[in-house]
Design a protein around this nucleic acid. Sequence first.
DNA 1: TGCCAGTGTGTCAGTGACTGCCAAGATGGC
DNA 2: GCCATCTTGGCAGTCACTGACACACTGGCA
Lengths: 194, 194
Amino acid sequence: MKQATVWDRSRQLARQEILEAAVRLFTTQGYDRTTTSEIAAEAGVSQRTLFRYFGTKEDLVCGDQDALGELLRTTVESQPPEVSAWAALRAGFLVLATANHSLDLTLTLSKLIFATPSLQASYVQKRLRWQQDLLPAVRDRLGGGSERELEARIVIAVSFACVDASTATWVASDGTEDIEALYDQAITVARSAK
Amino acid sequence: MKQATVWDRSRQLARQEILEAAVRLFTTQGYDRTTTSEIAAEAGVSQRTLFRYFGTKEDLVCGDQDALGELLRTTVESQPPEVSAWAALRAGFLVLATANHSLDLTLTLSKLIFATPSLQASYVQKRLRWQQDLLPAVRDRLGGGSERELEARIVIAVSFACVDASTATWVASDGTEDIEALYDQAITVARSAK
DNA sequence: TGCCAGTGTGTCAGTGACTGCCAAGATGGC
DNA sequence: GCCATCTTGGCAGTCACTGACACACTGGCA
């Protein structure tokens, strides 16, 4: 199954180049003040090609999120059965944090998302989908029955809230704090708060 | 301070007419397959006027949410001091449920939002803002210190998750079930799940 | 009654994201 | 070298949305 890869390589290269140009312009000019044709020109491709690689302007920032959601779900599902729902989710989040290509790029993109309302919307929407996709696995881990559906929703929502809180703190600290510790701290608060 | 109200009345009327036309077209054709100029024509105004009343196409569906968020916040803040954070939030949500103009319209719009991804995004985003606005009040009710900020975030997130779950169930039941009971059920699950 | 300021509306042109279509060039298998 | 396949660029068009301008209407004041 060895692929010819001349096309594949150039595709990969073009994609990379477009992405870099986009991030460069976004960080210097801001997301809203950067047009897609500008990015295309900077990357040396036509606007049409840009939209073939990234279906949406938002995808230039949030596009990789889809793959991350998939990674999260499979990680949670592949935890051994004796692992609790809480622990399974924690494991999934940790894999995400370490799987992120470069912490530096992650920090840059996170700042961009936090600073741009329209990006926040698409980011939150993608995360909502993650939560939906996690429902079956978490429900099964809680005991299975459809009565556990509500409980599963809550467990997932709380876990994500902890990710949010710790991520926000992490970004605010410019990436100096330890995300894992922050998450555990948030979970501790959540499970004792009542 | 009696207002002249000839303008006000015609403004109110135009707004109402645009809104009704929009809902009519959205429910019959779907949100994405309805253009703003179509709505304007149906309402008998120019497209420009439509955008003066509703800054965004999404606002035609989610526009009133802003006022609701304000109502939620003031309700929570005005609860007596001895009321717990959980109870204060519950009180706020109840006011929202009953304050909704018409349950019928609410049900229609909710279905529209649930069925349209782009609407979900703006809906969720607005609700995120509500959560932020609620932070100070809830934190104070939990004891005040900045250490309570994380806890406040969690309490709010869990409460909203319960609203989500109960609303989803309510919409799925076509509005026949009692939202208040559903919410209490969700909260019970949330506070015992751990 | 006539004038004037404030406000609402329509028209028009324009921007920016995004899509369908088609022609041209590059690539790889034969 | 030939042909199917893939990729790209250009172009026209749609749709959401905005700024600018002119016109009309309302209410207050002289």
